[in-house]
Design a protein around this nucleic acid. Sequence first.
RNA 1: GCUGAAGUGGUGGAAUUGGUAGACACGUUGGACUUAAAAUCCAAUGUCCAUUAGGACGUACGGGUUCAAGUCCCGUCUUCAGUACCA
Length: 937
Amino acid sequence: MSYDFNAIEDKWQAYWAKNETFKAENNSKKEKYYVLDMFPYPSGAGLHVGHPLGYIASDIYARYKRHKGFNVLHPQGYDSFGLPAEQYAIQTGQHPAITTKENIARYREQLDKIGFSFDWSREVRTSNAAYYKWTQWIFIQLFNSWYDIAVNKARDISELETIFASEGNINVQAVCDDDVTQFSAKDWNELSSKEQQKELLKYRLTYLAETEVNWCPQLGTVLANDEIVNGVSERGGYPVIRKKMTQWSMRISAYAERLLQGLETIDWTDSLKESQRNWIGKSVGASVTFNVKGYEDKIEVFTTRPDTIFGATFMTLAPEHDLVTKITTPEQKEEVAIYIQATAKRSERERMADVKTISGVFTGAYAEHPFTKEPVPIWIGDYVLAGYGTGAVMAVPCGDQRDYDFAKHFNIPIKNIFEGVDISEEAFADKENTIIANSDFLDGLKYKKATKTAIYELEKLGQGVGKTNYRLRDAVFSRQRYWGEPFPVYYVDGMPQMIDIAHLPIELPEVEKYLPTETGEPPLGRADVWAWDTLKGELAKNEDIDHVNIFPLELNTMPGWAGSSWYLFRYMDADNENEFASAEALQYWQNVDLYIGGSEHATGHLLYSRFWTKFLHDRGNLPVDEPFKKLINQGMILGTSAIVYRISGSDTYVSKGLKDGYETEELRVDVSLINSSDELDVDSLKQWQPQFKDADFKLEDGKYIVGREVEKMSKRWFNVVNPDDICNDFGADTLRLYEMFLGPLEQAKPWNTAGITGVHSFLKKLWKLYHNDETFAVNDIEPTKDNLKTLHKTIKKVEEDIENFSFNTSVSTFMIAVNELTAQKCTSRAILDPLAVLISPYAPHIAEELWEKLGNSESISTANFPVFEEKHLVESTKQYPISFNGKMRFTMELSLDLSKDEIEAAVMAHEKTQQQLGGRTPKKVIIVPGKIVNLVG
RNA sequence: GCUGAAGUGGUGGAAUUGGUAGACACGUUGGACUUAAAAUCCAAUGUCCAUUAGGACGUACGGGUUCAAGUCCCGUCUUCAGUACCA
């Protein structure tokens, strides 16, 4: 009876589907455990072997936790809105809804083949109206909220209106737009309704504002900061320009401090937390106001070094700073205009690439130093960024290298305010190891005290205040695209109004042309879309908003991260039509215990979902304020591309070993045409693409050898390996084990099919352990001591491995166990029964099959097992000979099932006995739980 | 530049806390079975010296601590990832 993996896997996948084996119950007395994968974009390319890596790891953990007796929620779904789905639809000329549906069907088929224990009854798709109804609902909640700094949480906007009506905004501490001015209750009540709405918009957590956005003409949309990499769009790599547009924004900046603090409470990797910290970019310092000589205007700067204020010998403004044109003197006007034009021409990317060149120009104007009242020349320089702080700096050349370089370049005086520090070569940026000098009342003080004193004195003058600045910007939330959630918004007299939640969802209309436009006009704005009759008709039923026939709807759509920011909660109660999830479900499942996904979402999805979670928590909609308790980043599986070498200008391809004799160019060819020793199947290549049809090949030793390159797995490099092929040839259990065996979960590693036979033959050996040629060979004889030792050793190691997420070493442990038990000719049920349990999280199909043959009625996947619970004494005594001062001595290692305290007590007793007997005591005893290392004389 | 991670055989990678470095697997070599191949099984496989017995050297490099270092400390080099004029 051979190991027929295809039949076994089909059988059990059908069984699991039919019996809904992995359906999680919302009402359970068991302890809950929530294991989640980052849900995929259903792109047209389908899954490659890299995608399931994280899913396999989470599946092992989910299955393990079920065995441990937990009620495990392990759902899956699709992030089906957003740019990738739409780009694919554009390429294939089909409607995104159709391609998305097809892609999802394909993904599902591929996922099912691998045997995941997903609870598909809870599947979510962000592009389903039943789902995005609640995305729209959350948007409305954000619109109806403001952030109260006094209580440090979001509150209902109606409460703010009440405050305004009774006392104005004088006592309100809120996160709001910069241009908010003070008003009294009387002022407020005298405002027109429209003016009041305008004012409230400055406080709402999602608001409409004319902002400088990152506009990508090729994609026809704006992009968030995290969607731009090195100055070009993350998707497609197209140029991005700055443009002013009226856009919806999310006031995530209100949560900057809490997003930072919350990192302390969650179990994520340090590098990921560090990325979020950098992205939030907290810096503590002071805001200082400089008066401009001859003008009423003031220049506000942010500095982290108010202690160095006496070293400020000039100021630098960003070329885009509002005051530049106003304060520039007539003599400098031309020079300044030329400079501004030149910098505007340089793209963001060029500016970033070229940080060495120092450029700037003097405005001719002077500010006044707040303390010395001396004139401070005002310069413009593109090293000052308009987007950070106030777009202006007080330049302290002695303490900041950039200011120093700028000053040297333009011969601006440098004043040394550090005692005994040489600044003739470079600035002195060290805060800690110096004393301030030449600084009036700051003389003789150290950094800390000087900072405090400077802020105190500035506050006394009314020219400064201690301030904490964050790099985190509010997130632009509008996209000029078709394939996204419509906003539940219409406009009356230019002011946004929320559509009543009774009318949700606002469904995305069917359109003929969904391509983006280069001008920024949203696709929904095209005339043909005004067949949006369903919506209009629906809205018209409500007399209050009958005027949607006259007043326009919001035509932008939401960005890709909208739906993914809260999907984890929808899984808890996926079919609920009345709430995004019921209070009971949310209370029971709380949040995700284990989240596995790629690190590329560090500053996007993972930050936004934390933000929405905190917001919904503030508004009483969630019991938790962090979405993901523990997070693991799986490393990427890379492809190994195959390269052929074409002799330039010819149709002749030369084998790798001969290529140095020619001038060649490299072409990538499909990796499936290559065998395990890098030899190319020339005939298949000729079939593969027309360009190779009549090609000649220069062989070495009768073979064409290709070059190899490890790079990202991608269709365009022809290096994609499809998991379906692996499942067909070796089985899903082999694929699962092999992906784990490849190396540590979190590490990037190239896919290489070479080693897969080792894992596959392990499964065959496992099968043979339970079978004697044609018959099932397990019996009820007593296990031997060796049998038990092998089993218990394996249980201990596998449990440790799973808890530590070192799945790769478990596979080795299984191999050793099977080899040992085979050598021991073990046929005892008492061993082979628990062994099947142990392997089942990794290789569930074969485990189920063996488990059934063992005569068990219940599915191995649903039963709880004591095997992971037992504590066992592992008897292993090793002796290591070591050399100590020229004499042979021994160390002894004992593995005991005792706590650390118990071991300590035992060692003390041992020492005492040894002393009483006059024997030698150990020189050193190292104790760790479960083990003693005992150095004896 | 800064931050983080890492550097171990021909290859992927093991080695909880300092305690037999190279588990396990791939590959390679030899053997068994077979008419043959595949499959399967067995043996060898860090490097060097030695016929053997055995010995020397070995975890990027240079130092240090220790009875004992892949692991800890100091310095250097390299690679990968993230980030970047953040005032």
